[in-house]
Design a protein around this nucleic acid. Structure first.
Length: 334
DNA sequence: TACCAGGATGCTA
DNA sequence: TAGCATCATGGT
């Protein structure tokens, strides 16, 4: 076991932040993480100094240093990111009707202990292909079903409250070998073809995490987009959560909502809404339609304008505002 | 029943 | 390049 005192680290928030789908909390404060063909148990304990806590990693020192330390992004100084975010919010308060700075400040307070995980590229490709047009619980179910059918079976070493076996994430070979119809019955819908064709191309190209690391962020994103079923959003998720490009900024419906609501000046919002009402000849504009009134380029422009202070770690800020947003939606549901 | 989900694709103009 | 319909499936 490896025990570390770590600041800015909250496993429950990481688990619920939407970046990882194979993480569970079988008992209060005890977590299990699956990555490829690895499995890790962790426990959180309250630390002596404020903001820090002890975390027990149930693995060898070697495995911790070779894999999990980078996986949990533990070498990065998250305190420095928080400090720069606070400074940015303080400076920009008053600009853009204060909404953006205020939202960002609250999002950073909520999300600062969410580490952006460095998972593996292949697992992120398939996981985020599955994620499209699905809710997070449904994504988890599909991925787990995929693992059960195609993943390598492992025996759990410490027999006890846990099931005595688990499955790793399936390899591209296993999925490709199953053929075009091999994915049926997993509730994947139209994504079956995307996953199968991605597995075949992945093998044909001989893709590895190492070849991606030799690319620039732009090259990697462009390359991921050449797979059927991977567009801008999914490619950015792979870049951020799998390839370690921390400037990648996935734009999904929640991020669009945030950018529109908090960062588009009221004057522009009024104009957009007015023209949309005239065009659609109705006063009742669905939120989705409103968010589509801005193009992908428009959203990129907003990010360029309002997040340039975070160059180098923009993706981490994205994850914090995303997690903050979905936590608010979830508490609204209650 | 209708609508939505951490979207992508293919067609049309 | 933008706008639009369509793509399965499960959940509310």
């Amino acid at each position: 076991m490896v025990s570390r005192e770590i600041g800015y680290f909250n496993l429950r928030k990481i688990m619920n932040s939407g970046q990882i789908f194979r993480m569970y909390e079988p008992e209060n404060g005890r977590f299990v993480v699956f990555s490829g063909n690895k499995r890790l148990e962790l426990c959180e304990r309250t630390g002596e100094s404020k903001g820090n806590g002890y975390v027990d990693f149930y693995c060898s020192q070697k495995e911790f240093e070779e894999y999990w330390e980078d996986y949990f992004d533990l070498k990065r100084d998250y305190g420095a990111i928080v400090k720069s975010a606070e400074e940015h919010c303080r400076k920009s308060a008053g600009i853009n009707e204060m909404r953006g700075a205020e939202f960002l400040k609250n999002a950073c307070r909520y999300g600062a202990d969410i580490r952006v995980l460095k998972q593996n590229v292949w697992e992120m490709m398939i996981s985020f292909i599955i994620s499209q047009q699905k809710q997070i619980p449904s994504i988890r179910k599909c991925i787990e079903a995929l693992c059960e059918r195609f993943g390598e079976k492992h025996v759990t070493e410490d027999m006890g409250t846990q099931p005595d076996f688990w499955h790793g994430f399936p390899s591209a070979e296993a999925i490709a070998a199953a053929g075009p119809d091999g994915l049926k019955g997993l509730s994947l819908g139209y994504r079956e073809r995307y996953i199968y064709e991605t597995a075949v191309k992945y093998l044909t190209d001989g893709l590895t995490d190492e070849t991606i690391r030799e690319m620039t962020a732009d090259e990697a994103k462009k390359y991921f987009c050449s797979f059927t079923g991977i567009g801008n959003k999914v490619a950015d998720c792979i870049c951020l959560f799998g390839a370690g490009f921390t400037d990648a900024f996935p734009i999904d419906v929640h991020i669009k909502d945030i950018l529109y609501r908090e960062f588009v000046p009221y004057e522009r919002q009024i104009k957009l809404e007015k023209s949309l009402k005239e065009r659609l000849k109705t006063e009742d504009i669905p939120r989705k339609k409103l968010l589509e009134a801005l193009s992908y380029r428009d959203y990129l422009q907003i990010i360029d304008n309002d997040f340039s202070a975070f160059n180098g770690v923009k993706g981490i800020i994205q994850q914090w505002i995303f997690a903050y947003e979905i936590s608010r939606i979830r508490s609204d549901d209650k």
